[in-house]
Structure formats: structure tokens, C-alpha cells
Amino acid sequence: MSPLSSNDLERIFEKLDKNGDGQVSVEELNWLLERIGVEFSLQEIESLVGKPSLDWNDFLFFYRSISTPDSNDGDNGHGDGSANDHDDESDLVKAFDVFDINGDGFISCEELESVLRRLGVMEENSSRDCRSMIHVYDTNLDGLLDFEEFKHMMLHNTIS
């Protein structure tokens, strides 16, 4: 998967904002999380986002905070085994499991496409090629992303 562009994020935001008020509520965010198989209570989600709803700028900040390593969290970049390292790895495992629909330890083109469609990033007749998206991070060229390749992709993710 290539990094989500601002256009992709804007489409996700618009799909989440079901009532069109320019805000994504914790209920609307919970709807998305449930669709991709992640279970949180509304209180947990509000605690994560810090408020009952997110405007576009808050949504971008939230996305960046969960998709980009935080260089100011006390991690010196050397993987010193701190709690933050463990939490980051645990979050990556959970994210990987969302994409690894069949549980075989790999993300295929079909699985990637399925999750991106559920997220509203890909349209039914989209011309995007999931194979080329996977190819960017597929270091062993098997056409699949294993956890290490996925981790590399997520840790080097930037918003274009």
C-alpha cells in the first residue's frame, strides 16, 4: 500500500461524516473501526482522539499521529525496548491483522483492495493497481506483504 494521499484522506473523511456537518464524531469513527474489525468503546475512542468529534484538520492530525512515528516520544530511534516500542509494534500487529483477512501472515493484492474499498479509499471501478502499491514495499518480490514489509511501509509512510 502506498501512503494515503490528502485526496484519499479527504474521501475517507467525507464518507465518515455521514451527517455532513464537517465533523467526524466518535460514533462515525467507531462505524469505520467496526467495518475493519477493530472493536473499541465510544469512551476509548474519545479518549484516543481527545474530543467528541474531529474537524478536517483534527482528522489529519489524528491520522498523522497514528501513522507516523513520533520522534518526540522519548524513543531515541534505536529500538531500546521501551514501552513505546512495544506499543508501536502491538499497534502495527493489529493494523496488519486488519489487512490480513485470511490470517495467513501475508497481505495479498485482493486483501488490500478489499480493505481499501471498505475504507472508501478505492472505488469499485478504480484504476488503481494494488499490485503496484504492494510492489513498492515487497522486498522479496513474492507479490505479498509480510509483517516486516508492512512495518517498513507504515514506518516510512508520508502524506503526499
Score class of each variant (00 low, 15 high):
V24W: 01
N102F: 00
V24T: 01
N102L: 04
K151G: 03
N157D: 14
E34A: 15
S53I: 04
L33G: 01
D91Q: 15
S132A: 15
D58H: 05
V24H: 00
E148G: 01
D138F: 07
R117T: 09
L9P: 02
G50W: 02
D97N: 12
D100S: 07
S160V: 13
F59K: 11
L155A: 05
V26Y: 01
N72Y: 07
D21S: 03
D70I: 00
T68K: 12
N30W: 03
V136G: 05
V115Q: 07
G105S: 09
S126I: 05
P69W: 08
D8V: 00
F61Y: 10
E46W: 03
S132P: 01
D138Y: 05
I45E: 06
D55A: 05
L42M: 11
T139F: 11
H156E: 07
H78V: 12
F150A: 04
D55Q: 06
K94E: 15
G81L: 03
N76P: 09
Q23Y: 09
E123Y: 14
S127Q: 13
R35I: 04
F99C: 05
V115S: 12
M154W: 06
D80C: 09
S71L: 12
Q43V: 12
C109K: 14
M122P: 01
D58Y: 00
L48G: 06
M154L: 14
S65V: 10
C109I: 12
A95Q: 01
N72P: 00
F106R: 14
S90A: 12
W56F: 10
E149P: 05
N84W: 15
E110F: 03
C109M: 11
F61H: 12
A95E: 06
V24N: 08
A83D: 12
H86P: 00
D17K: 00
E39S: 10
F96Y: 02
S5M: 04
Q23H: 13
D80G: 06
S67P: 02
L141M: 11
H86N: 14
L32M: 10
V26G: 07
D8N: 13
L119D: 04
I66C: 08
L4T: 04
E34K: 15
I159D: 04
V49R: 04
E124P: 09
E27Q: 13
Q43G: 03
E111K: 06
G77M: 06
D129A: 10
S160Q: 14
T68D: 09
F150E: 00
D91E: 14
L48E: 14
T139E: 14
K94V: 12
I159P: 04
F99S: 02
G37P: 07
D73C: 15
V26D: 07
G103V: 07
L92T: 06
V136I: 09
R64P: 02
